[in-house]
Design a protein around this nucleic acid. Structure first.
Lengths: 252, 252
DNA sequence: CGTTACGTTGAAAGCTTTCAAGCATCGTGG
DNA sequence: CCACGATGCTTGAAAGCTTTCAACGTAACG
C-alpha cells in the first residue's frame, strides 16, 4: 500500500541554487556532497493546504525535504483521537522513519501550500557508503527530532495547560525565526486552534480558553487560522522553556 | 561541566563474546565491523540501582551501550516536575543526543544495577567514515527512538489514564520479552509506581488507583518495586496498541 | 443563500490532583 | 534486638482542572 500521489512541480530548483543553502545556520557542503545531493534529488512535488503528504500504514518509496511551507506530522488512535507530534518547516527531512520500519508509522499533512524535494529512498544506502559527512547529517537530524520530541513529551506530560500553550507557540516561533520566516518583523504561525489542541493533548474548548489567557496577557494575538506572536520572551518565560541550544545544522 | 563518574568494571566482556550478539533479532556484523566495535569499546562501567548515569546540562565525553540491567531517561522542569521519556534495556545506545547538541538535554538513571559498555565519542567520526553499515545502524537506532517517542506522545496526549497505563506496561513487556528477559516465563518489570506516574504524566495517587484497576482486571499484579505482567494481549487490547512492528535490529 | 470551517461561551459532568493519613518493609544506629 | 527514618503502596475526601454538551457568531465558498 503506497501513500498519496502528489503533483510534480514544473521546474525544480537546482540544489546549487537552493534558497535554503544561504541561510546562516545551515552548514556548507563540499563539492562532492553538493553533486551527490543534486543527483539524489529526483524532482519536486507540491501539496495544497490540508493535503496529505504521507499516511500512517502506507509504504512510501520516497524521502522528502521540505523546501517551502509548513506541515505537521501526527498519529491517530483507531477512534479518531489525534496527536500532533511535531511540525515541519523548510529544511526539514520527511519520511526517514519509513526507511527504518518499512511502513510509515505516522501521517504528514500540509499546513500551507508546500513544495517538497523528492529523493529516492533506495539511494540512501549510497549516501551512507560514499558520504560520511552527509550520513552524519542524517543522524544529526534524527537526533534533533528526538530532542524535540523529548521536549514535547515533557510539556504534554508535566506542564499545565497554560504553560503548554506558551511553550508550543514559543517553540514554533523560535523555529520559524531561525529560518527567517517573519514577514516584515511580524510572524504569523499558520495553525488553527484545533492544531494547538491536538498538539497539547487538550480539548478544543479548553484550548480556546487557554489561548484567550495568552491573548489577555498580550503574549499572542489570534487571527483567523493563524497565531501572531507578540512577546516570544514572555512565552518562554511563562513556559519555563530555555529555547533550543542549537548550533550550525546540516541539511540534505 | 561533566557528568557523574562511574566505577569501572573489573573484566570487560570482549565484543566477540558479547552475550547480546547471539539474540535472534540483532543483525550480524562482518569481521571488519566487529573488529572496529571491539576497538571502539574502551571499557565497561557499572552503576547501582538509582545511580545517575548522565545528567541534563552536563557534557559527557562518552557514548554508552547498555550491556545489562534496566535504566530510564528523563527531563525535569525547574520546579522538580519530572517526565520520564523512555526506558533503556540491554542493547540500547545511551547518549547519542549529546553528540549532536554538545550537552546532554536529559538525564539517565539506573533502575537496577547495570553494566554499560563505554565508547569514546570522538571516534564516532571514524565510524561514519569507515563503516557505512554501522553508521546506518546508528541512524536506525535514532529513528527507532523517535518512533517510540511518537508512541509515548500519542499515549500521554490522547489516551485515558487506564489506556496509558496498559500501554506503557505492554510496551515494556514487549521490549523485555524480545531480548529474553523473562525468568522462567514470568516477567517482572523493575519499576515503582512513581516511575509509572512520571512516565504517564499522572499523579502517583491517581496512578495507584489506575494500576489497581489493571490488577482487578487480572492484567497485571503489582509487587514491591516491580510489576508482573499477567496478560500482555489484554493490555495491548485495552490500550489499542498494535505493538512494535520491528524487524531485525542492529546494535553497536 | 445555505453550508462549512473556525472561533467563542456558559454550564454541568467527570476526571485528576492535592491533602491527609495510615500501613508495611527494610536497613541502620543505639 | 528494637526504635526510627526512609521508601513505596493505599485510601478517602475535597478542590480544581478539563472535557463534554449545546449554542451562537463570523467569514469564506460554491
Amino acid at each position: 500500500m503506497t501513500g498519496p500521489v502528489l503533483p510534480r512541480s514544473g521546474r525544480p530548483v537546482p540544489c546549487e541554487r537552493c534558497p535554503l543553502r544561504g541561510l546562516p545556520f545551515f552548514r556548507d557542503f563540499d563539492e562532492g556532497e553538493l553533486a551527490f545531493v543534486s543527483s539524489f534529488k529526483t524532482g519536486e512535488v507540491t501539496a495544497g493546504q490540508g493535503a496529505s503528504v504521507l499516511q500512517e500504514g502506507t509504504h512510501s518509496p520516497h524521502l522528502y525535504t521540505l523546501l517551502s511551507g509548513w506541515a505537521f506530522r501526527y498519529k491517530m488512535l483507531s477512534d479518531g483521537r489525534r496527536q500532533i507530534l511535531n511540525y515541519m518547516l523548510p529544511g526539514d527531512l520527511i519520511g526517514l522513519q519509513g526507511t527504518v520500519t518499512g511502513t510509515m508509522e505516522h501521517s504528514v499533512e500540509a499546513l500551507t501550500p508546500i513544495v517538497l524535494c523528492l529523493f529516492e529512498r533506495e539511494r540512501l544506502a549510497e549516501l551512507f557508503v560514499n558520504h560520511p559527512g552527509l550520513s552524519f547529517d542524517v543522524t544529526w537530524m534524527a537526533a534533533r527530532e528526538e530532542r524535540i520530541l523529548d521536549d514535547h513529551l515533557l510539556s504534554v506530560g508535566r506542564r499545565t495547560a497554560l504553560e503548554r500553550a506558551a511553550y508550543i507557540i514559543a517553540f514554533l516561533h523560535s523555529r520559524a525565526m531561525r529560518i527567517g520566516l517573519a514577514k516584515n518583523e511580524r510572524l504569523f504561525i499558520p495553525i488553527t486552534q484545533v492544531h494547538v489542541a491536538d498538539t497539547l493533548g487538550l480539548s478544543t474548548v479548553h484550548t480556546n480558553k487557554t489561548l484567550k489567557k495568552l491573548s489577555d496577557l498580550a503574549l499572542i494575538r489570534w487571527h483567523d487560522r493563524s497565531c501572531e506572536v507578540l512577546d516570544p520572551a514572555g512565552l518562554m518565560d511563562l513556559a519555563g522553556w530555555e529555547g533550543e541550544h542549537e548550533r550550525k545544522r546540516p541539511f540534505v
